[in-house]
Design a protein around this nucleic acid. Structure first.
Lengths: 211, 211
DNA sequence: ACATCTTTCATACGTTTGATTAAAACAGGT
DNA sequence: ACCTGTTTTAATCAAACGTATGAAAGATGT
């Protein structure tokens, strides 16, 4: 067997990049294969269809991110239980939000993927959005559950919406980081992932704990 | 002259609805004209192009919303100046965010438009996003300026990002309200615009004032 | 060296898209 | 009733799309 990875992952990397930049429907298979330097038919040969390629882009990235997120969240929950304390809302939100931004800076090519996630959250095409949500939902509910333990005096539906607000803040930020030119000149000060993470975690923690 | 409005605004209303539901690229002129019960060529006759139609959808709705927003914001600024006080961050954010949600409930067909706005913020197509931003930017900067007066002890770039977080929370919420089926069953409690407004304003105000 | 399986390639198919056109239908002023 | 300008209609265009195919090229095991 020849080195399959070459052509196959080159398609995947290019697809990730172009999907992030121009959206799923704004990226044709001809764009992808041309940019990747492979034949047009290679996508359907290796992945079956454009949809399946899109799905694989998400699968590859979400597996490690979700594993880290899950481990961090459950560790927080367990440690709180053993000490008979409530989990700290800040730590929960940190565990939920930080891996994404951290991942963005470390893994090469991940920045494009993160932008793609930000886009896909409000993707008109239900099929595509469901691919994302399938990966996202389990950890969302886990985070929500621990948050309810952290702030038991706040009604659950309020916490639910506040977590949604946090996700909105996060996804919008991810999008802005991938599109610096939304605002003119140097209006957006480009901070590193760590600073942004602190800013956003402080923001949503304050919002989450209010009242 | 015949009643132009009939065909012309029927196209506009239908376009707004379908663009919101399926996105700009997911909606063909054939979809719009079929749903509106007019001929395919009518769009190009009345609006010139699909792009121009999209632009008109935004123009129609943003003019009144922006007027209200602007009046509210400048009133807050003036009243604070006359009493030699700082504007209240909560009032500023309320003035910035509430009109959109309020508008959503009152004006018929506005709900679709609001969903469309939520989508277009992270639209891959730069041309389309710029149409939205052209309407949005002036009020954003006005809000930002008054916010700096309200919280002078917080660095401006921190306030800038926090306002972005608020916008993210807002736009994500607008999207969710238009797509109740993102989460299973009755997971999302459907609250009225007033309640949601209070929730989100409290959330972002707490985040804005923290430290 | 041969036979077999995998991968690449150029090319084509059938749809759908936004846009255009010329003719038909309609309206209002006189 | 007639002319004039506006609106609607059906038909057609070229371009772009995802996908399919069969032949060529390459790799692998013996």
């Amino acid at each position: 067997m020849k080195d399959v990875r070459d052509t196959k992952t080159r398609i995947l990397d290019t697809a990730e990049k172009l999907f992030a930049g121009n959206g799923f429907h704004g990226t044709s298979l001809r764009d992808i294969t041309k940019d990747a330097g492979v034949n047009l038919a290679a996508v359907n040969y290796h992945y079956g269809s454009k949809d399946a390629l899109f799905e694989e882009v998400f699968r590859r990235r979400f597996l490690p991110i979700n594993r880290i997120r899950r481990e961090k969240l459950e560790k927080i929950r367990e440690e709180a239980r053993q000490e008979n304390l409530r989990p700290s809302a800040r730590e929960v939100l940190q565990a939920f939000l930080a891996p994404v931004l951290h991942f963005r800076e470390t893994e090469p090519g991940a920045a494009a993927f993160i932008t793609l996630v930000g886009r896909t959250i409000s993707e008109p095409d239900d099929r595509l959005r469901e691919i994302l949500m399938g990966h996202f939902r389990p950890n969302f509910f886990l985070c929500f559950a621990i948050l309810c333990e952290a702030l038991p005096h706040i009604p659950k539906d309020v916490l639910f919406w506040r977590l949604q607000f946090s996700i909105g803040a996060m996804s919008h930020t991810l999008f802005l980081l991938g599109h610096a030119k939304v605002f003119p000149e140097g209006v957006i000060p480009d901070l590193d992932a760590g600073t942004i993470t602190d800013l956003i975690v402080s923001f949503v923690t304050a919002g989450m704990e209010t009242q």
